[in-house]
Computed example of a mutant assay.
Amino acid sequence: MTTSNHPGVSHTIFDLLGIPGLEDKHMWISIAFFISYVIALLGNSLLFFIILTNLSLHAPMYLFLCMLAGTDVVLSTCIVPQALAIFWFHAGEISLDRCIAQVFFLSYTFISESGILLVMAFDRYIAICYPLRYTTILTHALIGKIGVAIFLRSYCTVFPMTFLLKRLTFCKSNIIPNITCKHIILAKISCNDIRVNIWYGFFVLISTLVLDVVLIFISYVLILHAVFHIPSRDARHKALNTCVSHVCVIILFYGPGIFSVLTQRFGHHIALHIHVLMASVYTLIPPMLNPIIYGIKTKQIWDLTCGSCHLVLRLRAGHIFLKEYLPFEIQVF
């Protein structure tokens, strides 16, 4: 791919480099990407299936978890297939329209997941502070409206980015030193004044992620205040235990993202490949670990998952026994 500084040239085809400085290790890095993607797909699909097919799990907490699982699948799909194409086939060429679409879907799902984590904190607040009114407050109709509001907020926030990027002329370079297209990275290789892009990106960050973190923090302050006023020690322990999974997921989602933002802002001496790897972590790790955390820490999901596994093993064992000792074959599956 070529670069140009000619003001009359506007590139419409770009080249994603992958992880600059680690080109010789792309094959090894791709193994970690591939494994995390497979685990994320299988784990979240299983979680989604278990919740939707079991009426006992159609409670507000599990419906929000179902939204989270679906969003996790989309979030990891926005990153990993493109990264694997670069690592395995050196297929980093991407058109401007595809690049902008990638920016849209990546930002959309990231903001949606942040919104889902916020309403899950609200769900825990209602369950602990108003347990007797839990199901009457969080009705299925309200959950549906909350879901629409989450995804509508994400769409309305991210959609203007497409116009802010489409107005730019990319005459500086068509090289993107990353595994995926991102709003500010794409804006920085244009030859226009990008102050509007920078300020709008800052507005999106403050009005979505930062606001969500503040509201989640307030929710847990209220939750802790209510929990420590419960007279029974066992009841306090049980109430806090219901929040453990959610707190772990919050740390996994926001922790690497905050660290990545801080290193980009203040870590100018840090190598570029470290920035790219850190930016990848917060879109790879949460989708992979979220279903594992909720599967282990949530008794109902764990029991149903283990029950399904035991049933499959017993059916397979019976199938082997019948094939071994009967004069004719009986098909179990």
Rank of each mutant, 00 (worst) to 15 (best):
F217N: 06
C306R: 14
S30G: 11
S308P: 01
N178E: 13
D193W: 07
G147F: 02
R98D: 15
C309T: 12
A83W: 08
V247A: 10
S112M: 14
I100Q: 00
I184D: 07
H275N: 09
S112I: 10
F33S: 05
G201W: 02
L47P: 04
P231C: 02
L142T: 06
F253N: 07
T157E: 10
I128W: 00
M1D: 05
G255H: 07
P286L: 00
V210P: 07
K299W: 06
N44V: 12
M27S: 14
D97R: 10
G307F: 00
T139Y: 09
V214I: 12
I150E: 02
F33A: 02
F14M: 00
V210T: 12
I320M: 06
P286N: 06
E93M: 10
L22R: 15
V249R: 11
N178M: 11
T136D: 04
E23G: 12
L106Y: 09
N178A: 14
Y108H: 14
G295R: 03
P291C: 00
L284R: 01
L152T: 13
T242Q: 15
L142P: 04
A279P: 07
L211V: 05
P7D: 02
A187N: 09
K182M: 05
L22V: 03
L164F: 01
Q300C: 09
C156R: 10
W199I: 00
G267V: 01
I223Q: 02
H319R: 01
T135H: 11
L132K: 12
I116L: 02
T12P: 01
W88Y: 11
Q264D: 11
F159E: 10
I100S: 00
V103M: 00
H273W: 15
F110I: 13
C243N: 12
K297H: 10
H183E: 06
L209D: 12
V158T: 13
A226M: 01
D72M: 02
G257T: 05
C309Q: 11
F105T: 05
L52I: 13
D97F: 06
Y134I: 02
A101G: 07
L68Y: 11
G21V: 06
C129R: 05
L215D: 06
L63A: 05
I13K: 14
N174L: 02
L252A: 04
M67G: 13
F122C: 07
T162S: 14
L152M: 13
G318D: 03
V38K: 04
T12G: 09
T157P: 08
A101S: 10
I143K: 05
L55W: 12
V247P: 04
V213A: 12
E329N: 13
G43Q: 01
N192V: 05
Q82I: 09
T3H: 10
N192I: 05
I94V: 15
R133M: 08
M27L: 14
F89Y: 10
Y282I: 07
V38L: 10
K166F: 00
T242L: 13
S173T: 15
N192R: 07
V214H: 07
K145H: 05
F89D: 02
K238Y: 05
G201Q: 03
M61E: 14
E329K: 13
N241D: 15
W28R: 10
G43A: 03
I31A: 08
A121F: 02
V80I: 14
T162P: 04
A235N: 08
I19V: 15
K188T: 14
F202E: 12
T169A: 08
Y155L: 10
Q82L: 09
